[in-house]
Simulated scan of single mutants.
Amino acid sequence: MEDAPRTKRRRTESTTDATAEAPPLVRSAEYWFDDGNIILQAESTQFRVAKSVLSMHSSVFRDMFLLPLPSDEAMVEGCAVVVLQGDTALDWIVLLGVIYPKRLVDKALHPTRTAAILRLSKKYDFPLFREDCLKRLKTKFPTTLDEFISNSWPFLPTESSGYFTVISLAREIGIYSILPVAYTVLLDDCMAKILDPKDTDLSASDRLACLLGYANLLELQGSTTLAWLNLGAKHLPSPTCRQSTKCVAAVKDIIVTRSNNHPPLLYILDDWDEAWESGMCQPCRKKAKEVYEAGRETCWDKLPAAFGLPDWEELKSLDLK
């Protein structure tokens, strides 16, 4: 980036500290177009872009540009400067990358970029960008079990920070219906980080919700998805089993294997594990799988409550539209 001249700044919000020393202004190396006719400033970075392009996407900017400029408005290279109070330069670099794309399609939008676009699209009303990001998030973290099973995974966090970003964004923007699945997937993939408060970027309330949910889901799975392992519940051996001694021994082996997992694993939304079928006859395998699949339905219905959240329908009604 090269240095940009200081200027009297037009603001979208009132300045609260007029005496603070402003850092040197810099021009964006990527989004400073010679034919641009408006300058956006986020933090100390300035972007020279086209009013027409912003107006095409955003009703807030469209309405702003209809207002006449003050007679004493300072200009930079003939362009007014709009200071975007409270926004980060990084968020605007992400959004301008969508407004001025270099590639035809971006299918694998990372959670951090999704958060930036959603944050700004809500504030400045970029409805199509907002709808697209919401669709991606709700496809990844759906509200029905059928959608979860057939998930097309529009993006997949590769580390815990991706889930932390999604959960924080859900609270910040108001996308509450994605929280139950986001919490559950985080518990499955990053339990060790949640257990260690020094190794998580989750807020205290979200970490508490995860820990509460973990305890509740461990208890819930014992009476639902993993109920077939409880030999006292009489699910197994199956009434048509012809090798009950072997099937009971196979179940006991699975119980011993599970007991060696620390911390204990969740089997709430996972697909049936065919490795569990080893040593069991066909009728027992069928019965165990039936109990497991029915248990997933029950667990799904109770998933929000496990984390102290309202039911699915209420969560959806609270979502940003």
Rank of each mutant, 00 (worst) to 15 (best):
T7E: 10
R9N: 08
R10K: 01
R11L: 03
T12S: 07
E13F: 09
D17K: 08
A18S: 10
T19N: 14
A20L: 10
E21Y: 03
E21M: 12
P24L: 11
V26Y: 11
S28W: 04
E30I: 04
W32A: 13
F33M: 06
D35I: 11
G36Y: 14
I38K: 02
I38A: 10
T45H: 03
K51R: 15
S52N: 13
S52T: 15
S52Y: 07
M56C: 04
M56K: 05
H57C: 02
H57R: 00
S58A: 07
V60S: 13
M64S: 09
F65G: 11
S71C: 00
S71G: 06
E73T: 10
A74W: 04
V76E: 03
V83C: 06
D87M: 09
T88I: 02
W92V: 04
V94W: 03
V94M: 04
L96I: 05
L96T: 04
G97C: 12
G97I: 08
V98K: 10
V98W: 09
I99S: 11
K102S: 05
D106V: 12
H110C: 09
T112D: 14
R113M: 11
T114S: 12
L118V: 09
R119D: 07
R119V: 02
S121F: 04
K122E: 12
K122C: 14
K122V: 12
Y124T: 02
D125C: 05
L128E: 11
F129R: 03
C133I: 09
L134M: 12
L134Y: 02
K140N: 13
K140Q: 13
P142G: 12
F148N: 07
F148L: 15
N151K: 02
T158L: 12
T158P: 00
S160H: 14
G174N: 11
G174P: 03
I175H: 07
A182R: 08
V185K: 07
L186E: 00
A192K: 05
D196P: 03
P197G: 01
K198P: 00
T200S: 15
D201F: 03
A204P: 01
A204C: 09
D206G: 06
L208A: 15
A209E: 02
G213M: 05
Y214P: 14
N216P: 02
N216Y: 02
L218F: 08
E219I: 09
L220Q: 15
S223A: 13
T224P: 11
T225I: 08
H235W: 01
T240W: 00
T240Y: 03
T245N: 05
T245Y: 08
A250K: 10
D253T: 01
D253H: 01
I255N: 05
L265A: 08
L265H: 02
Y267T: 08
D271N: 14
E277D: 15
E277G: 07
G279Q: 08
G279V: 13
G279M: 15
Y292S: 08
Y292W: 04
A294Q: 15
G295Y: 08
G295S: 11
R296C: 12
C299K: 10
D301Q: 12
L303V: 08
P304Q: 13
G308R: 01
D311L: 06
D311G: 13
E313L: 08
E313T: 15
K316G: 13
S317D: 14
K321T: 04
